[in-house]
Design a protein around this nucleic acid. Structure first.
Lengths: 179, 179
DNA sequence: ATAATCTTTCAATAAATTTTGAAACTTCAA
DNA sequence: TTGAAGTTTCAAAATTTATTGAAAGATTAT
């Protein structure tokens, strides 16, 4: 039993490899605050050579129609998936953005907008806490909020830079400068 | 009621500011796959001028002793918090790493080790799927896994670079090169 | 030793999140 | 129109994750 597993460490059959990928991508998603099923649907569409229908997604992942609908909608909202009209078919089909750099950019853009930007607004506000600046805890609080704001805002700006940058920024030569 | 909120947009009293921070940091944590309470305890220790005891954390956050114990242990495990002996006191006190660059590095290091590295191992394996390379879906699968592996591994290496780099890499001038 | 103080554990419980599936809704062809 | 084919919605159920709190385990002072 253990031996069999070791054997498959070097090569795997397609079906096994596929479910391993769906499982892995789903787990990664949930560790980073993305619904596991959403990540799995994304994984499935990512490796599908052709667009898939809701039916097909239901069957592949053993999930309900409602669940497919909600998560696909969310993926469309993130601009990672789009509806595809297949000629002569009434059903809707779905396909995922296949370019990894694009995927990374869209995820970064969305998380920045939804999660980082609101935090920045709050931090900026908190660094202007009112009160006796001689009070150690108040002074330190304001300082800490200022520091955090500064840090998160630098992160945020770096993400902006990345979003604007050509893919080459990352895959190409510029990255070597900071190695 | 709306007016009052608007007033507080410019300045806030310390206690309000503090709970806003605890709430915000906790929410951010949970959006990124970190337990909300763990993030709140971290936030609390981050702004505390002196180390806090389990009792104090319990009271500040209205949570149970067991919850404090588990989450503080986890924070210690992440190397974000450490036990402090206060002279003449039997109780344990806790304090957080206060340097933001250090915090970022330790979080990055931990998530990389726990979440990214295992995924890399799987992707590498999956890119060597066995089967008929003439089969479109198998060929594309292997390609996609290779691409993903390549991408995630570049990300991973960039994090390594960051971890080894001086704080200056980020706060200083090099960052301007890629702006 | 014994007791007092503090910490840890973990089964039970609560809370939050995800999923289901059937009904309502939409669209389109005949 | 009507109904067949498909999509969406959302309250209820299932599942997952977090929290409690009391008992057991440590540690130190007396």
């Amino acid at each position: 039993m253990k031996l069999q597993k070791l054997y498959y460490l070097s090569t795997m059959k397609y079906d096994e490899a596929k479910s391993k990928f769906l499982e892995t991508w789903g787990k990664l998603g949930s560790e980073w605050g993305i619904n596991r099923t959403m990540a799995q649907i994304h994984a499935l569409l990512l490796i599908a050579p052709e667009p898939l229908s809701a039916e097909e997604i239901m069957e592949e992942l053993n999930i309900s129609r409602g669940n497919v609908n909600m998560n696909v909608r969310e993926l469309i909202d993130w601009d990672l998936v789009n509806k595809v009209l297949v000629q002569g078919e009434r059903k809707e089909y779905f396909s995922a953005e296949k370019d990894i750099w694009e995927i990374a950019k869209r995820v970064a853009k969305e998380r920045k907008r939804r999660e980082i930007e609101p935090v920045l607004k709050v931090l900026e506000q908190l660094s202007r806490v009112e009160g006796d600046k001689k009070d150690k805890k108040i002074k330190e609080f304001a300082n800490k909020m200022g520091e955090l704001n500064n840090f998160v805002s630098k992160m945020d700006k770096s993400v902006d830079t990345m979003l604007k940058a050509d893919e080459n920024w990352f895959f190409g030569s510029v990255i070597k400068m900071i190695r």
